Simulated assay, not measured.
Amino acid sequence: MGAAGPHVRDLQHRLNATGHWHGPITGTFDSVTATAVKAFQVQRSIDIDGICGPVTWSLLIEAGQRLGDRLLYLRTPHLRGDDAAEVQRMLSTLGFTVGRIDGIWGLLTSAALADFQLNMGLGGDGVCGGQTLQTLQRLVRPLGDASVVAHITESQRLESAGGLLAGRRIAVGEAGGLEPVTASVRREIGRNGAEVLTVHHPDWSAQAAQVNRFGAAVYIGFEVKPASPSISFFQGRHFVSRAGQKLAADIAHRLEPMFGAIPTNGMGLPMLRESSMPAVLCRFERIDLLLERNREVADVVAQSTRDLLSDLQVASSLSE
């Protein structure tokens, strides 16, 4: 509050482009600017604090990427933006496997686009340019928003794991100060025969990259935050992680006798968005209570993860 200069003017212009700014561009971060930032944070399902930090700024930049304004192709670091998410949605609607609709142009999205191009006689170079985009839009227009393949893909990945933790890779992480909790979870899940990776890093994006390389089937994160407790799963503009949502609800239900009612919510936080597997982030307000009950929490996480895999396996068997 009170900051002023070209950087604030840039922020206000970007808020205006997303429909969250309606007054004159002043270049001063005042209460009106903070309110606009909060409205954008609500729309993008991230922490609502009225502060333009790294996550909010990155998403503002992504929101300014309009479909057709640039070529979309596989590169490192991956391209991100609303334009990438829209192409993912269209490909998913047409039945091509893009993974999650997360606005991150990764390997699955590039392969799905190349497959689409080959099917349409467009060469298959994996680059989304004008001709590819026009063909996508023409085919999707009559179908509406039917982006279901991304949800099916997530379920199929877990169904192949079977109903047991034995032999599965599970990742557990925290951003600092909660090593006893992750150690207890690792022991409990490991006792069920799973291979467990514990990640300790203050940067959630770095954690996501590490668990993706590990090839985890499920990720459970822990954080202490001076706010109401919550358990979050990934939810974007075109995608909700159904498996993550189910896992979050089950953990919250089992923890209620210890911590009281804990709400679950879909969020676009970096850890949840950038992980390639169903992920939940468990936030607690009191570190003392969490550390005191960490063994019970570990048992809950192990049970809920095992039940998630088991329920999906049963559903798969019934559908067959």
Rank of each mutant, 00 (worst) to 15 (best):
R70P: 05
M90I: 03
W105H: 13
G99I: 02
R295V: 12
L91F: 03
S110M: 00
T28Y: 10
R273S: 08
V32N: 13
L290A: 13
Q88M: 06
S184W: 01
L79M: 14
A243K: 04
R286A: 13
V301P: 08
V185T: 01
Q117H: 04
L60Y: 02
A63E: 14
C128I: 05
L308H: 03
Q303W: 10
L308C: 06
A175Y: 14
A36F: 04
A4R: 14
L312D: 07
P24G: 15
L291A: 00
A114P: 09
H13S: 08
A111P: 01
R237H: 12
S304A: 15
Y73C: 06
P226K: 11
T56P: 13
G236P: 00
P270C: 05
K246T: 13
L318W: 10
V224D: 03
L309M: 13
V172W: 10
H151P: 04
E188I: 09
G260K: 10
G260A: 11
R168S: 15
I220N: 10
E274G: 08
V8C: 08
G19A: 00
A4N: 08
K38M: 15
D115P: 06
S319R: 12
Q43L: 10
R80E: 14
H22W: 12
L197F: 14
P229V: 11
I152M: 10
R191P: 06
T76A: 07
